[in-house]
Design a protein around this nucleic acid. Structure first.
Lengths: 242, 242
DNA sequence: AAAATAGTGTCTATGAGACACTATAGT
DNA sequence: ACTATAGTGTCTCATAGACACTATTTT
């Protein structure tokens, strides 16, 4: 950062955007909220909601604006993911995008999906464990959608990040309604990790984590013993490092 | 990303830079390679090596160029850290920076430090565990240096990332020469984590990890039983998820 | 009562911490 | 021989998986 601003403005510099991989849980599977592009490039393809960063707007502010304007959402969990800056990633010119991911309970999307060309698309993760790589988004018939730009990679990076994080950070709760059972939470973890989880030790681990606050209420209208409903307790006791 | 480029160029857009937190291990402590700023703003303060991203250059390419031009380094371990975009972070105007961190063995810096105003500064991490926050850089007398921009936060984020990563990813090796003993590696981990580590289980864990290749050679010129020298074996067998 | 899931108690396997003991270099 | 660190073997403790058993709701 040696040159001053007057020097800089003589040269063209990259455009800066934010894109949001908005994930939720639907029918026990990860879904992404995508929108259908009308204009070129990638007309007809699906893309993440995104937008250019204004000159007087922080990156999180830009994300909040995009979520409000394009999805009608507010107050959702958002975290920075990665910045994608390959020279050829946008055929219109040089656009570097700071990708964020957002997690919401599917119920919060009811209003958003009614508005415009937003679609909830099931994700098909073609790699195991924490390996990584691009991810497919499927339409209602289970056929892979064409994804604009490098958005398949951004979605893949999101899943990879979630898989690495869910075991030690309280992110699973963001995909659930305020009250949920232990089985609900287990199914979130299974959907994210893409593999079955031991039920017994999951129960013990989560109950011991201090992240669950009992509500005293039970799940209603089930044809068997009802499960206890919990609430997410922010600020679990800091787990010291071994 | 709805508007096309001709629309965009009518509006001023943020400048884009990369900054590199280059860390190494020296005297059993984490050090950062900083350079002294001559010009305003923050004249006289220490800053991370960095530079603006050219229009036809990817982000990793920009980092490689910065490391070469400003530090005389090449072939070092580099990873993207986080993107910092607060509106007021650069008094000259709107500059968003994609921060990277680099890890090098201290021996690789001999040439770099001779060139120009680069200084190796000991880091003082004022927070425990993986808590996070800004970090201080100390001069040769142990006094805190003034750090330019938000570079104290970038350095803090780097330490936080390393602490979270060193237990399951092979990053410690990047701070060591090609051949090293188990005690060398343990001291790297202790410097990064900022707390003592159990020697016995560290040995067992690392030997079982498949990341160490025995060289058959021994550390020479020590006044006690010499330790075996190991080499880092890339691509340890993938550890399956539980 | 039957079906189905919730929740408890206990045994076992694995990995980390602790520590005693042996090994091998320089002085 | 002495000192200092390298390296081995074993005991204990904490946690995860496995599984048997009990509990509680609707039909």
């Amino acid at each position: 950062m040696e040159a001053d601003e007057t020097d800089l403005d003589r040269h063209p510099h990259p455009h800066l955007a934010v894109d949001v991989a908005l994930l939720t849980l639907h029918e026990r599977a990860l879904h992404a909220l995508l929108l259908r592009r009308d204009a070129a490039p990638f007309a007809g393809a699906a893309s993440l909601p995104g937008g250019f960063v204004h000159i007087d707007e922080s990156l999180p502010d830009a994300v909040v604006r995009v979520l409000r304007e394009k999805c009608g959402l507010h107050g959702v969990f958002v975290e920075q993911l990665f910045t994608f800056g390959d020279v050829g990633r946008d055929p219109r010119g040089r656009v570097v995008t700071v990708a964020y991911y957002a997690l919401v309970p599917v119920a919060a999307l009811a209003a958003a999906r009614a508005t415009g060309e937003l679609t909830l698309c099931r994700l098909d993760v073609p790699w195991p464990q924490t390996q990584g790589g691009p991810v497919r988004a499927l339409d209602a018939n289970g056929k892979p959608l064409r994804l604009a730009f490098d958005h398949d990679v951004i979605l893949g990076t999101t899943v990879q990040r979630l898989r690495g994080k869910i075991d030690y950070a309280p992110v699973g709760f963001e995909l659930l309604p305020p009250q949920f059972t232990l089985l609900d939470l287990l199914e979130v973890h299974q959907a994210v990790l893409g593999c079955p989880i031991n039920k017994d030790s999951f129960r013990r681990r989560l109950l011991a984590s201090g992240l669950l606050a009992p509500t005293g209420r039970l799940r209603a209208n089930v044809a068997h013993r009802p499960a206890a409903l919990f609430r997410f307790r922010r600020k679990g006791r800091g787990k010291g490092h071994a």
